[in-house]
Amino acid sequence: MISSSPMLTGLSAALLCIAWATLLLPVARLPLAVRVLVMISITLLVMLPAGNDPGWYTVRGIFGDSSITALFFYIAFILQQNFSWQLYRNNELVLLRWLLPVTALLLYPFALGLTRFDSYSLGYSNPWLLAILFIMTLLLWWRKYYFLTITLTAAVVAWSLQMLESHNLWDYLLDPVFVVMVALTWLKPALSRNHTR
């Protein structure tokens, strides 16, 4: 379980910070050794105590826990940008850039009280939400988008195992920080081109 393990929770906060640093800083242009040093430094900053508490307490206090899909994406994004290890195809990233904002639009306005309908409440035990996700995952598999297929399946399995504090499936599928990050990779295509050099 991620949320019951301080080490895993801390590491997931470190992943979030490294992914953001990779996105916003020109890390990919640095020599490999420096890139590794930057990542180790961020990890230590996040994991080691600053004052009374580890830095990841602050990261978690502000941003909450990352979704499972976000963690998969952060790992793939960091590896792709820094080490040119391609875990997802470009078409998958393009699809994710559409899929995530659309899902966010279906979730956040309603969760924040726009209407009487609350799409977030469907995430507790609604079999139809699971069915839609299953069909979507099969379509991804059919198109050979294996990274997204595995990521979505992992999120659903993690939810069934209650690996995060939340018992709501939506919290395993997406989070606002992840949505903003993927949107930024869209708005900054130059960043995602770095790895193709």
Binding site: Y124, L130, L138, W141, K144, T153
Partner: peptide, 21 residues
């Protein structure tokens, strides 16, 4: 690989459905 991924998807979602509260 393709078959393995499909098996993983089916078994993962089956597990989620069985444990659906």
């Amino acid at each position: 690989i393709r078959l393995g991924v499909l098996l993983m998807v089916v078994s993962g979602f089956a597990r989620a459905l069985i444990t659906l509260p």
